[in-house]
Amino acid sequence: MRKSLDYIIETIIFICGMLSIIFVVLIFSFLLKEGLSFFKDFSFIKFITNQFWYPNSKIPSFGILPLICGSVLVTLGACLIAVPIGVMTALFISEIAPKGVRDILKSLVELMAAIPSVVIGFVGMVTIVPVVKNIFNLPTGLSAFSGSIMLGFMAVPTIVTISEDAIRSVPGQYKEGALALGATKWQTLRRIVLKAAMPGIIAAIMLGIGRVIGETMAVMMITGNAAHVPHSIFDPIRTMTSTIAAEMGETVRGGMHYKSLFAIGLVLFLITFIVNFIADLFLGKNKNL
């Protein structure tokens, strides 16, 4: 009796354990199915190299180059903000801040991650956007620049949390050794600790990038949604994610436009898959320290 009940429950537990794999495969195959049926009618090369995203014109053109450029530009901009702030904050919290305030600082940093992206989008829209417009004298403040600022701050918590773990897991002997040789604490941090924690920090940055690439609502509300290849960071742009979010509602289910959005989803899935895979490799490296 006792045994057979155990057997049933343990089978259920095993199936639940497998579900993650099943879901990843299911998501991938679903995107692939719709994406491939799109590429039958529109070549993949044209899809990623064509400069024009006109899904609704008489002769539709599904070039996602402007969308890729938009995503890349915003991501780069966000990284320029998030990486230095994130890594420096992680160093400060884990090594310099007094023990008593460490947890408070960390919770405050993580608070940012708790705020829904649509709220951040709205706040960016009414604060950063007009300011950017006035300072740089632009026709509109809805631009890659505004988007980069907001997304940068959204990526900071991810980078801080994971970098901080990496920095803290550097063995104490490393530090003590350097300090015993007469190095100042800062020299030790910079030359020894930072170097030892580097794989973890790189993983943190990768995960931060993953978060920025996948971000949808805030980006859609702040970056202006103009699907053309940008010339400068002050241009309005449109990312892959916001294209899916903005256009899916208007498509005919099963039509070319509908399928093209799944194809973009497939590209996004593959990009984040690679980014996360790399992050995971670096995290694994950190554990073998």
Binding site: G17, F23, V24, L26, F30, L31, G214, I244, M248, N276
Partner: peptide, 25 residues
């Protein structure tokens, strides 16, 4: 190891792609 990798990747899939998947399936 495959399960763990799957979990890492599920966590990294952009939310809008979940939207697509939910719509599709």
């Amino acid at each position: 190891r495959i399960i763990k990798l799957a979990i890492v990747n599920l966590a990294g899939v952009p939310s809008v792609v979940y939207g697509l998947f939910g719509l599709g399936i």
